[in-house]
């Protein structure tokens, strides 16, 4: 069980994290819009996330904090 924290206002909706997640647990929020007008990334299934941090590694803007 791992915990992701998103600094949603820093997210630019580039989607690199979404592709990087081996278990495809991330998506760009279909409805939420952040301060910059992007659809921020979010975790769809917290239980399934093992905290491998692939998403955070691919993120160019240090949006994702990963804790186990």
């Amino acid at each position: 069980m791992a915990k992701l924290t998103f600094k949603t206002d820093l997210c630019k909706g580039c989607g690199l994290c979404v592709d990087a997640c081996p278990k495809h647990l991330l998506r760009l929020s279909p409805d939420a819009i952040n301060k910059k007008g992007h659809h921020p990334a979010e975790l769809t299934d917290e239980a399934a996330c093992v905290g491998c941090a692939f998403c955070a590694t691919m993120c160019p803007d240090c949006v994702i904090k990963v804790e186990r």
């Binding site: 630019k12 909706g13 989607g15 690199l16 691919m58 993120c59 160019p60 803007d61 240090c62």
Partner: peptide
Amino acid sequence: YCPGCTHGI
């Protein structure tokens, strides 16, 4: 940097 630009990485 632009969205997805790897400068940030």
